[in-house]
Design a protein around this nucleic acid. Sequence first.
DNA 1: GTCCCTGCAAAAGTTTTGCATTGCG
DNA 2: CGCAATGCAAAACTTTTGCAGGGAC
Lengths: 132, 132
Amino acid sequence: MPSPPAAFRLTPQRGAVRDVVRQAQDHPTAREVYQRVRHRAPGIGFATVYRALNLLADHGQVLELQLGDEAVARYDGNVARHDHVVCNPCGAVADVSVELPAHVTIEATAASGFAVDAYELRFSGRCPSCSD
Amino acid sequence: MPSPPAAFRLTPQRGAVRDVVRQAQDHPTAREVYQRVRHRAPGIGFATVYRALNLLADHGQVLELQLGDEAVARYDGNVARHDHVVCNPCGAVADVSVELPAHVTIEATAASGFAVDAYELRFSGRCPSCSD
DNA sequence: GTCCCTGCAAAAGTTTTGCATTGCG
DNA sequence: CGCAATGCAAAACTTTTGCAGGGAC
């Protein structure tokens, strides 16, 4: 079972959190999601946002990421399999999608002994702004 | 300049930290490195370990990683370019090394606009113990 | 003597949890 | 009513930083 199929109640707060993450063009932290959600749901508390993010992530409706060297979780509303490019100087993150030859996963399985069923590629470099 | 060429003083404490990370078979957190280093350098403080890890990472003598969904940094003494396989159920991490075709990096550069100069592949699945 | 390093302790920032209240079923 | 969800506040952790003392050069 790749992800919990069980349903959950989509309360107004949870819906707002989900929408904020889906519409975000960047990869916001929990705190940033909280700040943005407050515009739609003024009385919402941080704990509600935090628990909603965990819930949504558990149900595959949102992705939880650890990017760069930062010690904070970031959220991604793009649920389709995709990869990331991180800018070393400024920390900017962009989505990209790279298809890997099937033999790569097979090799990884053979080399590690793990049953590999997914991958994520993380590129690093310099964003256009930092390349100038 | 990929990494700061400037030298730094390899004090006994820093040497002990470096050795602990290099000899670790797992990917210890700063706290774990601290606990292990205390066996060799009994009076050492956590701040010293923490600063040593950052210093070593800055000089490319150690790798700092964010693995899984955890919000803690882990350290890897394997400095050669390599990838990781994470076990979803238990969090175990294994090193693997996968050579990607050159065109992959080129594609990522074209698709993102970033000047991509490195990558890390993160596989996920189940380790042998969790597959039983 | 000067500068860097260490250790202790505290500050800052995130993540997580307890609990009383609220509200939908 | 019964139970899940919310909000507020407080823990529990990690990561960082300030400072005084000590050692290396």
